[in-house]
Design a binder for these strands. Structure first.
Lengths: 166, 166
DNA sequence: GCAAAGACCTCTAATAGTTAGGGGTGTAAA
DNA sequence: TTTACACCCCTAACTATTAGAGGTCTTTGC
């Protein structure tokens, strides 16, 4: 069995290799974490409804709507109401949005996420919790100051703020 | 007190004067009663939401939606989704629709409807019931064959069919 | 004459997206 | 350090559309 320290070191290496540290990434693209996540989902799925996005990223439709409002305002995405079913709205990346997304992330990132999602649910959860703990430690520069995390808080308590001032 | 026959005669005169006999009118315009009613509502209120139309004509939103579908298909109305509140949709008459509406009805009709709506609720209901009875008699050419009407059936049981074959 | 088809009308229930409102976090400026 | 601001996130309410089922009327074919 590897020691806890071994795990920490491995995690730090993963973080560096994949450039997943959200503050760094977000600042680079000028996008917040959820914004990036949603734009990636749109790129991955092509013509996609708001409901599908919400399902994929585990947010409510209302939240996706407001985030899309901001992205649309910045001309990174646009909406098209379906003619087949006028209840539905399809989201698309603008050329500008696609460019930004292409410039922003490290190519390794996509690979990593795909592989990560092939893990078991509990593995993903535990790894995320550990990553979170690592991030906290890095911020605090003090291991003992890092609070114990619950699973539920893992995805929320993330330092993804980037364009609060834009 | 005027006799029942006096009332009948008066009603017949009103019907002729205002050209309200629905079969005649509908055939003239190539529109059914509800279609005509909705188009008039749009013309009267200008930019109007589906919900408002439904309220004005006492139909469900779903019904208004399907009737608007047919009118839109015939290029008589068009929809514009509100930019202020993207839940809302405004209905408008096309030029073609406005033309059709302008040609179809007798100008007296508008006057009559306005005045009619200033009457008390029960007066309107009774008058409508009587008008309906008159219409039935005219169709039957036989007074005794006309069934006694209930208030609830007055607005429904109307010979408004016109373009079932179009 | 009469049965069947086709085109309507109408409704309720379900569905998709948007908005309102309230609570929270993080960053930057006074 | 407080304050302002811009986010995120949710639930509840709201607007319109669609699905599905039941009804009427007219036309068409027997």
């Amino acid at each position: 069995m590897s020691s806890y320290e071994d795990v920490l070191v491995a995690l730090r290496r993963v973080i560096r290799a994949t450039d997943l540290h959200s503050k760094r990434l977000s600042k680079h693209a000028g996008l917040t974490g959820p914004q990036l996540l949603i734009m990636r989902t749109i790129r991955a799925l092509g013509e996609v409804t708001i409901g599908t996005i919400a399902e994929k990223v585990s947010l409510s439709q209302a939240t996706v709507t407001t985030i899309l409002d901001r992205l649309e305002h910045r001309n990174l995405v646009y909406r098209v109401r379906s003619t087949q079913d006028k209840r539905k709205v399809h989201a698309h990346l603008t050329e500008e949005g696609a460019d930004l997304l292409a410039r922003a992330p490290n190519p390794l990132q996509e690979d990593f996420i795909q592989k990560f999602q092939s893990l078991a649910e509990w593995e993903q959860t535990m790894i995320l919790a550990s990553l979170q703990r690592v991030a906290n430690m890095m911020d605090a520069d003090d291991i003992d100051a890092s609070p114990v995390l619950t699973v539920g808080s893992v995805l929320k308590d993330d330092g993804w703020k980037a364009d609060a001032k834009s």
